[in-house]
C-alpha cells in the first residue's frame, strides 16, 4: 500500500468529503493561500475556492460559532483551531452551544461539525502553543473527542467525524504531522467509539493516546528484546470511550499502564483507571494501575526541559519494566 504522511491523509479526507458533498466546507485562520499553519489545507483553495475554504480574521469564537450555525442549518463544517490552545477562545460556542443545542431542543436539531485542533508539545512553541487539552472536552456530554495516532486513522477517523451528526473535537498532534504510514487510497471510515488493539502482548496492557501510541510501540520493540511483551491499546475516540478491549486485555495481563502527553492530574488517564477499577477486570489486577503523563506544569520553552515535561520512549520503557517486574 502507498505510504503518505498524517498531513496528507488529513488533506485527502477533507478533499474526498468536499468533492462528494457540497455541504462540507472548511473555515479557519490562514487555511487558504497559506495552506494552514501545518499545511493540512495546502492547495485546497485552488480546487474549491474561497467560498468553501474560508479564511477568517483572527476570531476563534467566530469560527466555532460559524460552524455551529452552519451545522444547525444543513452544512457539515470543518473548523480549524490553528493551535489547539486557541480553543480556549472558542469554549463557549463549543461547550455551551455545540454540545448542548441538540439536547436542549429535545433532540430535534443536529450539529454535525468537526473542529480540528493542532495540539501537543515538542516544537519549542512554549506554554501557550503546546498544550494537550482533550480532557476538558471529554468532560462535556454532547461532544465527541477523537485523537488519531497514525496516518491511516487520521483519514478514516476524520471522514467518520465529518459524517457523524454530533460535534466532534478532532485532536491532531503536531509531531505526528510528518509521520508516514500506509493509507488506503479509497474512501473509508474508521468508526468512532471503537478502541483498537495496536499490538498484542501478554505481560502488560498499555493504554496510550495520540503520539504516545507511537512512543509505546517503540518502547514495546525495546522491551520485546528483554522478553517483555506489551499489549498496546489505542482508544482513538476518547468520548465515547470503548472500554471493552481494555477490560479484556487487563483481564489477560493483570497489569495496566496508561500513557498520555496531557498533564496527569485531571487527565484522561484518570477516567480510564477509574473505569478499569469499576469493571470486572478489577479482580484480575495483580499490580496497581499506573499512569504515565505530562508533568504537573505548563510546557517550558527550553528544549531539554520541554522533552522532560512529557513521557518519552525511555520513560515508557522504564515504567513498563518496573510494572512487569513487580516494583509497585
Amino acid at each position: 500500500m502507498r505510504e503518505i504522511t498524517y498531513v496528507e491523509a488529513l488533506r485527502e479526507a477533507i478533499r474526498m468529503a468536499m468533492e462528494k458533498d457540497p455541504s462540507v466546507f472548511v473555515i479557519g485562520e490562514d487555511i487558504g493561500v497559506y495552506g494552514g499553519a501545518f499545511g493540512v489545507t495546502a492547495g485546497l483553495i485552488d480546487q474549491f475556492g474561497k467560498d468553501r475554504i474560508i479564511d477568517t480574521p483572527i476570531s476563534e469564537a467566530g469560527i466555532a460559532g460559524a460552524c455551529v450555525g452552519a451545522a444547525l442549518t444543513g452544512m457539515r463544517p470543518i473548523g480549524e483551531m490553528q493551535f489547539s490552545d486557541f480553543v480556549v477562545l472558542a469554549m463557549e460556542q463549543l461547550t455551551l452551544q455545540a454540545a448542548k443545542v441538540r439536547f436542549m431542543f429535545g433532540g430535534k436539531a443536529t450539529v454535525p461539525m468537526v473542529m480540528r485542533l493542532a495540539g501537543g508539545s515538542g516544537t519549542g512553541a512554549a506554554a501557550q502553543h503546546s498544550e494537550s487539552l482533550e480532557a476538558w472536552f471529554v468532560h462535556v456530554p454532547g461532544l465527541k473527542v477523537v485523537m488519531p495516532s497514525s496516518p491511516a486513522e487520521a483519514k478514516g477517523l476524520l471522514l467518520a467525524s465529518i459524517y457523524d451528526d454530533n460535534p466532534v473535537l478532532f485532536f491532531e498532534h503536531k509531531l505526528l504531522y510528518k509521520t508516514k504510514g500506509p493509507v488506503p487510497e479509497e474512501w473509508y471510515t474508521t468508526p468512532l467509539g471503537k478502541s483498537k488493539v495496536v499490538r498484542e502482548g501478554k505481560h502488560l496492557t498499555v493504554v496510550a493516546t495520540s503520539i504516545e501510541v507511537v512512543r509505546a510501540q517503540q518502547a514495546a520493540e525495546i522491551l520485546s528484546k528483554e522478553g517483555i511483551e506489551l499489549e498496546i491499546i489505542d482508544p482513538r475516540t476518547l468520548r465515547p470511550l470503548d472500554m471493552e478491549p481494555i477490560v479484556n486485555s487487563v483481564m489477560k495481563t493483570g497489569k495496566v499502564l496508561i500513557v498520555h502527553e496531557a498533564v496527569k492530574m485531571g487527565g484522561f488517564g484518570g477516567e480510564v483507571a477509574a473505569q478499569i477499577a469499576e469493571s470486572r477486570a478489577f479482580g484480575y489486577l495483580d499490580a496497581p494501575i499506573r499512569r504515565l503523563a505530562g508533568l504537573d506544569m505548563p510546557i517550558p520553552y527550553n528544549r531539554n526541559l520541554e522533552a522532560h515535561a512529557v513521557p518519552q520512549v525511555e520513560n515508557i520503557v522504564d515504567e513498563a519494566r518496573n510494572l512487569v517486574k513487580g516494583v509497585y
Binding site: I58, D85, L89, A126, Q128, H129, Y301, N302, L305
Partner: peptide, 22 residues
C-alpha cells in the same frame, strides 16, 4: 529559559510580557 521569545517579560521593569495569544 522557560518562556522564550514569545513570552519574554521583565516584571521588575513593569514589562508584563509578550503575548502568545493574539
Amino acid at each position: 529559559g522557560r518562556g522564550g521569545s514569545m513570552h519574554i517579560a521583565d516584571v521588575e521593569a513593569n514589562n508584563l510580557g509578550a503575548q502568545g495569544i493574539v
